[in-house]
Design a protein around this nucleic acid. Structure first.
Lengths: 208, 208
DNA sequence: AAGTATATTGAATAATTACTCGGATTTTCT
DNA sequence: AGAAAATCCGAGTAATTATTCAATATACTT
């Protein structure tokens, strides 16, 4: 399992799907690629397979995407957008009903559980299989920082050293829920129990 | 960026390096592959490049390795062995001088910091770039479980629910030190400060 | 030194796969 | 309907790269 062949040449003037038929084609391509990625993983993802599974020809694929990477960009973009929506919702929840630091922690952990419960197979492929570009890493990193900042703000009037605490809280909540829900490490106890325990641990720390 | 081509055919009776000249060849191949991996990443790693960098021919490479994957297996194996050694040392340290749960936590975090400080570029390539096989994942998972068990044992007479606590402690210590030392997420504070904070957080939890 | 086992070589092979292009088909417009 | 624009097709091209093999060279043994 390894690397392929990005043949970057003189760009073809990629069409931009004006008719609805074309929009449907674009959509079906993205869906096929997403399905392949989550069902069979990165190694099984190639342009010919995507086209076949989408029921279109490779030619059509290259009519709307300059290269294979561009398809992946869209998939990642949509995935991260879903994450963004969850974050926005979380921020709202915090503002609405988080009176204590423990409340903030609980919402944070619950948020990450939700984030990692949605389409876990795709999530897994995206985070473990697919080699992300520098720009894509930056995008992911930006999301992380946004969550940290929001958390720090929520904690600002409740605890000491909110910025540092927010970093640990977010990184821990993310890493552990990811590990338990996405990677299948064999945990002897359920994910719910672990999430509860995680809230306890982080709550203790937040209040310290 | 992607996947290559594992051409698995009828095994050739891979030679097993009887003369010292041959042993040196095997060694130089492994070293070249390791260097390429940590300097240029998984995408740059191919058998022709490995051979050139090692100063031998591809033919020689295939004399001692049935396929490309086998080279990677050796690299991962050696890397994990170093980890095993660190764990053994850590277990000894705990037995020698850990009287409180906080002592155990401190040693655990310090151990992970050490683990992730050694050859971080290789570590990074191995954990982020290289697609591991099922068997390799199992091997990594086994190391994790061993650390958890050792930690649980060390905590057994010191805290309540040592098994569950050990899981959280180990997964957290691993994930966060990895994130800070291996991935280069832009942290505003130093890795040492973060490690200290991590010890605080985990100590609070262990004692709870 | 001759003979045999072990090592090394690298050009050639073959499989994979990103991407192109000339032409066919369908939709839109007048 | 007829023309033009948009879309679609898929066999073919080219680049990459894992792997083989027949020939050559070096090291051991007697």
């Amino acid at each position: 399992m390894t690397s392929s062949t990005p043949r970057q040449g003189a760009r073809k003037p990629v069409r931009s799907a004006k008719q609805k038929r074309a929009k449907a084609t674009v959509e079906v391509i993205i869906e096929a690629a997403t399905r392949i990625l989550s069902d069979q993983g990165w190694d099984a993802l190639n342009t010919n397979t995507i086209a076949r599974r989408a029921g279109v020809s490779v030619g059509s694929l290259y009519e709307y995407f300059p290269n294979k990477q561009a398809i992946l960009d869209v998939i990642l973009d949509r995935h991260l957008s879903k994450g963004d929506a969850l974050i926005a919702q979380g921020a709202k929840d915090v503002q609405a009903g988080a009176t204590t630091a423990q409340d903030v922690v609980d919402l944070l952990v619950s948020g990450f559980v939700r984030l990692h419960s949605d389409d876990p197979k795709l999530h897994r492929a995206l985070s473990a299989d697919v080699p992300l570009s520098k720009a894509q890493h930056r995008r992911v990193e930006a999301v992380r920082e946004r969550i940290i900042d929001l958390t720090a703000a929520a904690l600002a009037d409740k605890v000491s050293a909110p910025a540092m605490k927010a970093t640990l809280l977010v990184d821990t909540a993310d890493a552990l829920t990811h590990k338990w829900l996405i990677d299948d490490v064999g945990t002897p106890v359920s994910a719910e129990t672990l999430a509860q325990e995680l809230k306890t641990m982080l709550g203790l720390y937040a209040l310290a």
